[in-house]
Design a binder for these strands. Sequence first.
DNA 1: GCCTTATTTGACAGCGCTGGCAGAGCGCAA
DNA 2: TTGCGCTCTGCCAGCGCTGTCAAATAAGGC
Lengths: 335, 335
Amino acid sequence: MSSRPTIKEVSKIAGVSFKTVSRVLNNEKHVSEETRRRVEEVVARLNFRPSHAARTLAGRKSFQVGLLYDNPSPYYIYHVQTGAQQRCTELGYRLLLQPIDSQSPDLVSNVLALIDETHLDGLILSPPVTEATALLDELDRRGLPYARIAPGIRQDAGMSTAMDDVAAAREMTAHLIGLGHRRIAMIRGLESHASSADRLAGYKAELEAHGIAFDPALVVAAENDFASGAAAARELLALKDRPTAIFAGNDDMAAGALAVAHESDIDVPGQLSIAGFDDSDLARAVWPPLTTIRQPVHELAAAAAELILSGTAPQPRVTLEHKLMIRASTGPVSR
Amino acid sequence: MSSRPTIKEVSKIAGVSFKTVSRVLNNEKHVSEETRRRVEEVVARLNFRPSHAARTLAGRKSFQVGLLYDNPSPYYIYHVQTGAQQRCTELGYRLLLQPIDSQSPDLVSNVLALIDETHLDGLILSPPVTEATALLDELDRRGLPYARIAPGIRQDAGMSTAMDDVAAAREMTAHLIGLGHRRIAMIRGLESHASSADRLAGYKAELEAHGIAFDPALVVAAENDFASGAAAARELLALKDRPTAIFAGNDDMAAGALAVAHESDIDVPGQLSIAGFDDSDLARAVWPPLTTIRQPVHELAAAAAELILSGTAPQPRVTLEHKLMIRASTGPVSR
DNA sequence: GCCTTATTTGACAGCGCTGGCAGAGCGCAA
DNA sequence: TTGCGCTCTGCCAGCGCTGTCAAATAAGGC
């Protein structure tokens, strides 16, 4: 194995002290242009890469940020990852992706272990890890910077990025009402995800704004996945007074509802409109493609990374825009 | 920020030299039972976690493995990640997830930078990074252990895990032939993915085994995603002598074909059978659910991690089983 | 009981880098 | 001319561990 060059070898060839090389690598000032050029030339020629471990050990920064997640949706995770990773890379940091069980009693100690072992400079929390109060308290106590994506609690504390779930759910509900629907059902997602409650609240608020009575029988709980969405839809469609539209708390559950409609030979959107939430790849892969809310997951994650890394954040709370995506799964109510 | 304890503080409290603590942490022998217990007790009490950076710098191992990927499918990536991560964690290693552009001219230098910076102990390559010969050469030159998942080239060199794409495609083709289909089309995936060619080869071989003439007009290239799969299906369905079945190289493309069938009011499987490959979540989320091949992605990644980490691998090449999943998207040919 | 060998522990250097500080060289005001 | 402040550079300690080697102790053989 060809042993990698060290900062000392670089300095020897460049004819300077190794501290000067360190200065060049860290872009410190007080290095003459000429010296800098010379060092950089040698660095490039030797293909020198500073040891991350040594920098971490000697300095007080590790240039590493952790991303904690515990979300079963591959699509969501993928976009959170790429969004955060992209911005971290741009800012010269490495992102450590860390799946974790947010329900585990060892959550706090597991995360602290990660922090201590890797000397993390900051942490990005995605739902539902965002709601682990014991963890938040401990991070605050340590003074470790962290940003939360779509937190459901303590929204005014610390750094966070979010979209307006209530407003988005209102928009979707308004869209359905505008199509003539009056019996609009909701499949709500997991209690542990704060956005589920917000989406339900938006749905209720918009019904009320239009003078449509809220009917608890039209709200069924599910677990954010296809199968439970399908089960919920079956329940709804067995109702005597069937809904003419179903608004699901995410696309997976909407896809489940859509499959049930197909299997029951119910035409979508002719006899039943179905709407989702998230605009995941799935929304465009099913037939008919789902009307849904585009959630800017990638951007939310990138913004969270930026909050942590760009030092003094102007505003600790960033809200990003969603967008109603109208596709073929919703249509005018039939009479 | 509460400063983390170091090995020296542990040793002071336990009343031993700090080297002895190091021995306990690394599970070395030649430590008396009593000493070990005492040290472990202090470690637990102080919640001591050894600094990863210091271990890496002082020792010759970093206990880190990299996973390189460049695949646009969230499902695939997600399962590769979780499979590899799980096994790495079990074996006491950290997994560094590294998305990378496999087509970039800087691929090799980017990967070498990663290796040098983080002192990686090994590397897992997933398709299509598996085919980057310049990278493989450089890794060989350095003697860095690496394992490839589903490599398309140099299959007998180095460590790798794979499934039998040819056999799987034959099984699927045989399934369709068994249903009475004779005009079976194939939507083939990206050239850069070796498995695409294998799946095509299996399809051809099975046709031949049944004495069915291969018709090049029935093979259309696409790019592994929904949109290109839909386009390919449109092309196939516009043929004068339409196929009665379409076998797509992955589930995304099959979903695209399925959407085209819906949009053209072609009943699936009544008038057209559609089959996919991978058994991603998508296969169960569309209607009708896709007949497909279950690819053991999670297990392939876990096995790759194990090959690298378990030292002397008994067999450097691991083949895992696939499974034909028959669902509702394929049925007997109509006459 | 004395020597040999195995087991258990400690002392110390050093991994590759950053932080702190001192020193050299220079320009400029007094 | 002296002194002050600036820019640039080098020296050295030390981050928290592991590797190496030697020393101390226990165990076994005759």
